[in-house]
Amino acid sequence: MPPIDWTSIVLTIRLALVTALILLVVGMPLALWLARTRHPLRPAIEAVVALPLVLPPTVLGFYVLLMLGPASPLGRFYETITGTLLPFSFPGLVVASVLFSLPFAVQPFTAAFRAVSREMEEASWCLGVSHWSTFWRITAPQSRAGIVAGGVLAFSHTLGEFGVALMVGGNIAGVTRTVSISIYDSVQAMDYATAGWTSALLLGSSFLILLLLNLTQRNLHAPWLKRS
């Protein structure tokens, strides 16, 4: 059995899955608003959403730590409810991941929603279907490719999380030691065998995910092409 740190891999997959799912639920309404609104604040909000793309992860981690720490209102609220602190815990890491991967989900969502034909939505309304139902029956299926892309990107991006996880998570085995931190640890300990195997696994699985995404995207874009 090759030396691989399975605990950190399972933890990282769990983190990526949770982050992607949360971003689907939280990101879609935000993306829908960004795609449709003409509110003057829109450019500012879009810039904020894009911040994690350009900010160094350590800067992001620093601010997240400030935001979630025991001195902050959010941190104190969490502590009174659960009795534990947000930093150095898995839920705290989830919050950091969601922020870190936010643009990777929201930007593809927004682009996909923008591309949906306005007239199709209007036609649905004129046919007596509510805005809510129209979203589920028309907008979402029409933007399926973008939604899937955003979800997968958020998942893959979280798999590689290092800087933010280190700042906010504290490298605690089985709780916040993500696979990239584990690899970093192995290299520091000069355990190149573990580092090598774990890295190869990460590389291989990321490639597979992206390959699968590309293969299925064709179907998502035009499933009807299979008929003719």
Binding site: M120, E122, A123, Q142, W224
Partner: peptide
Amino acid sequence: IGFVFQNYALFSH
């Protein structure tokens, strides 16, 4: 009301 759009806006999916 029934509305027919200029480019028909049929649901392509």
